[in-house]
Design a protein around this nucleic acid. Structure first.
Lengths: 214, 214
DNA sequence: CGGATAATTCTGCAAGCGTATAATTGTCGG
DNA sequence: CCGACAATTATACGCTTGCAGAATTATCCG
């Protein structure tokens, strides 16, 4: 008799927002921003479209929140990269490069998300700010690692030199990260990471390979 | 009296297809695939939407043609990079890297297009084939340049070694290309190119800097 | 100069989009 | 166990989208 209305469970705000953000990120990673429609996001999150507007004023707000979550996840991944690493500067640098070229960071999904957000980041000033903050954190961390490694070898470098070295290293890591997407069938993840450590060593003239674990 | 109908000029098939493709690329570069609607493309090309269907069966076909044009333009740009270069292998390699890190290849538009097409390329097998062809051409050219440069220095390298070196060099170039987008305010184009040549030299242990022009 | 032809415009449609709001219903405190 | 209230669903609206086909008109050829 009663037209059956869909059953549901009430969830907290944090939970539902998280689900919706996760759903949006999934869809953007799979099919780009165009795939992340209100209906598709709601469907993936297991709710009805109207709920999105209950938690986010406009769809654009949800997408912005999703980008923030993406950036935060990446910085969090970076932060754990040096966990449990010893004090030896060269070992730390080696480990950093190694970790940067393994999952989860080399997951094709990450590249897909990065590409999917590119235009949004460029057009929206607020998202652009989030991007710049996250990005310069990576560069700064790498710069410090390089500076410490140089110091451990008794080498000194002024700020300009360090900036150049960090830029080149960052570029090589990013490039290999990109390459990983294209060459995923040709290189195993261990190979990619090993290659990265070796080549960063060559770039900086540091014996990093010696510090490769296992 | 007569309801004024829009005036138009008849153009050849090649001309109109080219206009439509150019319009689509413009829009994708500016706002991603979502910005390239049938109406927006027609508007930018100075025609009415119906005409698109006269030249392309579906919108998807136009987008695929646009991607092919993009890939072709990039390979054409690469081909001209070594034009007028002398026979000296190290000079050729140096020039190649230098040119790869200057406009037109470092135009932010190129990165935006690359990102915009990423999802389409991954989902459509035909576009994926176009991508692989273009991409492996770049890698092969770089591999040959490296092999020749090694030979000129009296060094030999087996195929596996060359593949690794080419991958690393390609990654560094791609990474700097990407970096150029983010750091365009921080680095002049000449700086980026010079940095690239120096660091490729460090990667391969070749004195490339000596061959920098002017 | 006139008629044929195909390039182009015009109009319309069904589906999907984001948004708005009213109607329900799960949940929790008393 | 019940009433209140917010979480959730349902429905609807206006706009845009890609696509289709009919109506025009520029151009070319005899």
């Amino acid at each position: 008799m009663t037209e059956s209305r869909r059953k549901f469970r009430r969830e907290g705000e944090a939970q539902r927002q998280g689900d919706l953000i996760a759903a949006a990120l999934d869809l953007i990673a799979e099919g780009g921003p165009q795939a992340a429609t209100v209906r598709a996001i709601a469907d993936r999150a297991g709710v009805t479209p109207g709920l999105i507007r209950h938690y986010f004023h406009r769809k654009e707000d949800l997408i912005a929140a999703a980008y923030s979550a993406f950036a935060e996840q990446m910085t969090a991944d970076h932060r754990t990269m040096l966990e449990g690493a010893g004090p030896d500067p060269l070992a730390r640098l080696s480990r950093y490069v190694d970790r940067a070229l393994r999952p989860p960071l080399t997951d094709p999904r990450q590249v897909a998300l990065w590409a999917g957000f590119l235009h949004l980041v460029q057009s929206d000033p607020e998202m652009r700010a989030v991007h710049r903050t996250a990005y310069s954190a990576f560069r700064e961390e790498l710069r410090l690692l390089i500076e410490a490694a140089f110091a451990a070898e008794g080498r000194t470098a002024d700020a300009a030199r360090l900036r150049v070295e960090a830029t080149a290293c960052n570029a090589l890591i990013d490039g290999l990260w990109l390459e990983g997407l294209v060459l995923s069938e040709e290189f195993t993840e261990a190979e990619l990471a090993r290659l990265g450590v070796a080549k960063i060593g060559a770039l900086l003239d540091l014996p990093l390979e010696r510090y490769l674990e296992e």
